[in-house]
Amino acid sequence: MGLRLYDWCEVVLDGPNTFVDAAIRYLWPQARPVPAHDALPQVRLVLGRIEPGLVAGASRRRVTLYSSPDGRVPDYNEGVEYTGAPGVDRLVLNPHTGSHFLVTGHRVCVVNSEFEAGMRDALRVIKQLVTTAFEAVGVVTVHASAFAVGGEAVAVAGRAGAGKTSTVLAAVANGARMVANDKLYACTDTGGTHVRGWTDPIRVIDAPGHPKRSTTLAVYFAGDADRVVEDPLPLRTVVLARVGTPSVPVRCEELDRAAGLRELRREVLPPRVRWLGTEPSPASDPAPPTADRFLSLTYGYRDASQAVDLLMRRLHA
């Protein structure tokens, strides 16, 4: 099946129907079916193991698969590349999941005997292709969440655990629309910055004291695409969230624009590692993101709704 992601990046998925269906749910609402053809990049999931002869005489070296903004991703940061494997341009192993990535031209075959691990790595290949395609035209990835109000995006930045997702979900419960819960694609030109969101799952807490669980946007919003923004929106406001203990007073204050810009640009992630070997080079010196207004939002972790009420009043002031 062919998919168009973010209106212009196309890829063909091949493998078990359960993989294709799961990928469409995971990539919702940005995935649109399109006709498949040979010129498109292909990501194929194969359940099984590679032939031992592929790596028997190949040399090995360690490679970086992904550099995480919040530290290590336990099953994805480091890999092993085999040089000289017959019949393929590149063969990479994720030793943490057991997935082998066989790259031939613009086709990537992900081989794993376990469906969940293989599907997770196949989805990572898709995100690799999308992100590097964006980076090639000067789009940067910003480590921030965002919601939409009045046709404009409000980005929520902060360290891990600062309350980015909590603030956005509280804003959505207040009537805003979801843009992203962790990362934004940001394109900046003379007209300012426009952003759109990743489709990664949300980590939510069902009740105080319960552990976080991950759920896709499709499940969280019950397939209601009207609650999620798919198209690029102008970024006008950036909120620096600081979640504390229940005793912390709720405050929403204006920030100096120069200081706010520095904080925003600290959240720009470096270009992704080009480990597949098929990715285009990133654009040189992409324009950094910008915004017109910066706010600081401080609240206790149980007071997200009250904090967002105050934030909304400030946004409309």
Rank of each mutant, 00 (worst) to 15 (best):
Y6S: 08
D7W: 05
E10D: 15
G15I: 01
P16W: 03
P16K: 05
N17G: 01
Q30S: 07
A36S: 14
A36I: 08
H37Q: 13
D38L: 11
V43L: 14
R44Q: 10
G48P: 10
R49M: 07
E51M: 04
G53T: 10
G57H: 07
R61Q: 05
R62G: 06
Y66L: 13
Y66E: 10
S67K: 09
S68Y: 06
G71M: 14
Y76G: 09
N77G: 12
E81G: 00
R107G: 05
V110Q: 12
V110S: 11
A122V: 13
L123A: 07
I126H: 04
K127R: 12
V130F: 08
V130D: 03
T131D: 01
A133R: 10
V137E: 05
A144G: 11
A153D: 10
R159L: 06
A160G: 10
T165L: 14
S166M: 10
T167G: 03
L169D: 08
N174S: 11
A176K: 09
V179R: 02
L184T: 05
C187Q: 14
D189F: 03
G191R: 15
H194V: 02
T199D: 09
I205D: 05
H210E: 15
P211Q: 12
K212S: 07
T215K: 07
F221D: 06
G223I: 14
R227A: 09
V228W: 08
E230V: 11
L233N: 14
T237M: 02
V238L: 09
T245C: 02
S247H: 01
V248Y: 04
V250T: 15
A259E: 01
A259D: 01
G260D: 02
L261D: 01
R262V: 06
E263H: 03
R265I: 03
L269M: 06
L269K: 03
V273R: 15
T278N: 04
S281W: 14
T290P: 01
G300C: 09
Y301S: 09
R302Q: 14
V308Q: 07
D309T: 13
L310N: 06
L310E: 13
M312A: 12
M312Y: 15
R314G: 02
H316A: 07
